[in-house]
Design a protein around this nucleic acid. Sequence first.
DNA 1: GCAAAAGTGTTAATCGTACACCCATGG
DNA 2: CCATGGGTGTACGATTAACACTTTTGC
Lengths: 235, 235
Amino acid sequence: MLDNNSNQAAKPRMIEALSIDNVVLGIESGRLMVLTAKYNTGLAQGLWGLLGGWVAYDEPIDNAAKRILKMITGVDDLYLEQFRAFGDVKRYPAERVVTIAYYALVRPDLYNVIPGGTASHVEWRDVRNLPSLIYDHGEIVKALLLHLKSKVRHEPIGFNLLPEKFTLLQLQEVYEAILDVKLDKPNFRRKILKMNLLIDCNEKQQGVMHRAASLYRFDMVVYQKLCEHGFNFEF
Amino acid sequence: MLDNNSNQAAKPRMIEALSIDNVVLGIESGRLMVLTAKYNTGLAQGLWGLLGGWVAYDEPIDNAAKRILKMITGVDDLYLEQFRAFGDVKRYPAERVVTIAYYALVRPDLYNVIPGGTASHVEWRDVRNLPSLIYDHGEIVKALLLHLKSKVRHEPIGFNLLPEKFTLLQLQEVYEAILDVKLDKPNFRRKILKMNLLIDCNEKQQGVMHRAASLYRFDMVVYQKLCEHGFNFEF
DNA sequence: GCAAAAGTGTTAATCGTACACCCATGG
DNA sequence: CCATGGGTGTACGATTAACACTTTTGC
């Protein structure tokens, strides 16, 4: 994915048959956005793609994904999960490279990413209107969106796309963005509140030009308990 | 995973940082079983593990999984899907190897597997009572079982574990084996029939010492249509 | 007749859905 | 007083869950 002939000292040994590609997702004014990077080195120089890099020889793959993400964006400590491996023979032009795709869900307060490492620029793009990306990265995004649609119905991952305190409408918009549907407001409110996954912060929204909404936060403790019994999360 | 110094002619080039491990699952008298192999070569010689092997340099990973499965068991043409990659640094003792786990669901008529390739024996084991397996294979099975529990609720993969024609009780037993719960028979019948995924074969079970049950088969066409709308499959 | 599984019926409680409607606030 | 979103009520059909019950068959 990236240049492997730079002149750094003590360059770590990389597994060059194996890369990581991170799909970083966020919500911006109700639209699901993906972070793309413009590479300044290697085969993809000057082109846009996902946030990728090689796995080091002595590094767990989960760590590799985190390291690459931090290197390119400066951002750390976010929801990061493996999606799956992509291993068509010709997906990478120069040689045989299998990549493991990860996805990250980003809260808006971490939106200000600073390009670094092998990326000269990073840019948020609307996932429903993506330009063409290097290699099979377009395919990876498409497959991930399908996966997310299903996953968001069974696990409350949507919360990772919001600030710690959020309104019910914001949460609804996250679900609408991921599922690409319109939901009924009263029914959404009731359903989500009945799950007991939200804690009322007893605070109101500030600086809006209409009635201020209540702020809620996600109750991780209740969630863990529900998980052990395998619960449902349908909309 | 396997010996890479055999004296075959024209040995293909392998990516030795990357292996495949197949978890082959079947139902036997209502219990979920997994196929294990005893290796006759390589690091794992004499030990039991999943059905693994290396990815060839010019081979898509899905094909590698299929090829390895066929080599070890002689069995072809079954439901085979990628699970996910496992990449801890020390999961494989001799060197750094990332493995991509696949899982196969096997119909009972394909149970008679013949050990081949790098396996001297293969044996079905109860997944709820597994002996210890090489490397991280025990962990892979455990993680997959959790994944399957969730997957079976949203996609009708259970059918892949049954012969083409099956009774409703057999189907129920598949769900009970995967979910590890007891289900109510009348309610299960109604629910599954209402989905319209079953075609009545207008045939009865043979040779049972009680009232013979109707045989059904899975309607792939209706299923495909439902998939496009993203449907539910809860129990 | 008995056992074992097939298959049907019934009920109460819950849930999903589609709305109509009122409330609070800033401009 | 209007626009905007916050928030509640309601009513109907569909779904679920629990359980009693009848049917068929081989022994």
